[in-house]
């Protein structure tokens, strides 16, 4: 990727990157991420914004050793199957590589994806990553 000031590009992606927002078809109710002009199921054109829950399970994963420009390995990436039945590709975070397995419950968190532009003078791109789902523990004491 070129070291260009492509700030508007990521501003355009605010809804999907920050809120995991896709589309829902007004005709058949099918949801999709990312948004496309027509419904993936019935090709209907009448759609509305739909915010995914951010909960899902790991469908497949990889540990990237040789990273592309703008990233530094190793880090984990995955295909996550959201509970709405739609998949999303993202990084995994807050997890040991040895602990990841297919089927593991995960949840969306907002994290730094990249620094763009000249090093130290560019801007930060934030977006979704997924971490192991935090299961509420029965023994957790009530907050004072």
């Amino acid at each position: 990727m070129p070291e260009a000031m492509d700030l508007p590009r990521y501003r355009r992606l605010t809804a999907p990157y920050y809120r995991l927002e896709g589309r829902r078809c007004k005709k058949c109710g099918a949801v999709q991420f990312p948004a496309r002009e027509a419904c993936g199921a019935c090709r209907g054109r009448e759609q509305e914004p739909y915010r995914f829950s951010g909960r899902g399970t790991v469908f497949s994963f990889s540990e990237v050793a040789m990273a592309p420009q703008g990233f530094s390995g190793p880090y984990l990436v995955a295909l996550v199957e959201l509970e709405e039945g739609v998949r999303v590709t993202a990084q995994l975070t807050d997890v040991d590589p040895d602990e990841v397995e297919i089927g593991m419950p995960v949840e969306m968190v907002t994290r730094r994806l990249q620094e763009r532009g000249p090093q130290g003078q560019g801007y930060l791109v934030y977006g979704y990553k997924f971490r192991p789902a935090l299961v509420p523990k029965a023994s957790t004491p009530a907050r004072p």
Binding site: L13, V64, Y75, V77, Q91, L113
Partner: peptide, 23 residues
Amino acid sequence: SDCDYEASHGLSFTALSALLMRR
């Protein structure tokens, strides 16, 4: 690949093949 939804998240071409292979 899809720049906005794959490459921008650190997915290299090899990493995407790796997701296929693992599955």
